[in-house]
């Protein structure tokens, strides 16, 4: 009951900005009626394009979210390293599963299991911005050239970032140990 209530409240909160923008749009179109065609045609075209593709994407995400359990991801990422670890981090992060905040507790569990920091960062970043559903939307709306070049660049830089952050954290931890020993 309580959860249902909370969900309903969330949904109501989502509709307030929608109501606001509808009011703004109506007022603007009343003042400038010559723009009605341009605005409604554009909105309708984008809405059609989104509604043709979103249900399928959300369905795929729902299936993966239920089928690929957290435990499986943690199990595989916890024990691999090297190039295989990097590739697996990207792949498991890119799977069409839930939003980013689901991934943080998983990353924490991975740290506790002793997984490499580089892999955890790569996994989180892949989860945030190399997700398969996002790539599909990007392909649909921005074209294959844009999507493919951004994907390749993102993969390269995310790997570099993961390795750099691991180095920085290890280096700063070492610094702390030395400082303590010095005292």
């Amino acid at each position: 009951m309580k959860i249902e209530n909370k969900e309903r409240k969330m949904n109501v909160r989502d509709y307030i900005p929608l109501g606001a923008i509808i009011i703004v749009a109506v007022i603007m179109l009343l003042i400038f009626p010559d723009r009605i065609d341009a605005v409604t045609n554009t909105s309708r075209a984008y809405f059609t394009e989104m509604i043709m593709i979103l249900p399928a994407i959300l369905l795929i995400m729902g299936l993966f979210a239920i089928w690929v359990s957290k435990e499986i991801v943690i199990k595989y990422l916890g024990r691999t390293s090297g190039i295989k670890g990097i590739l697996l981090s990207i792949l498991l992060g890119a799977l069409p599963t839930g939003p980013l905040y689901v991934a943080f507790p998983m990353a924490r569990a991975l740290i506790k299991k002793g997984a490499r920091i580089s892999n955890i960062i790569i996994f989180l970043s892949a989860w945030a911005c190399i997700k398969i559903p996002q790539e599909i939307m990007e392909l649909q709306f921005l074209g294959v050239k844009f999507m493919a070049s951004r994907l390749i660049l993102t993969i390269i830089f995310v790997i570099i970032m993961g390795i750099s952050i691991e180095r920085i954290i290890e280096w700063s931890n070492k610094g702390k140990v030395n400082l303590k020993n010095g005292r």
Binding site: T40, S43, M50, L54, G62
Partner: peptide, 27 residues
């Protein structure tokens, strides 16, 4: 999975409409 998908659709729908109206106004 279907329930998850339907819930996320209901959840994302208002934002879809906001974005669509915003794009219409912008262009």
């Amino acid at each position: 999975s279907l329930i998850v998908a339907i819930k996320s659709f209901i959840h994302i729908l208002p934002t879809v409409l906001i974005i669509v109206i915003l794009i219409g106004l912008l262009l």
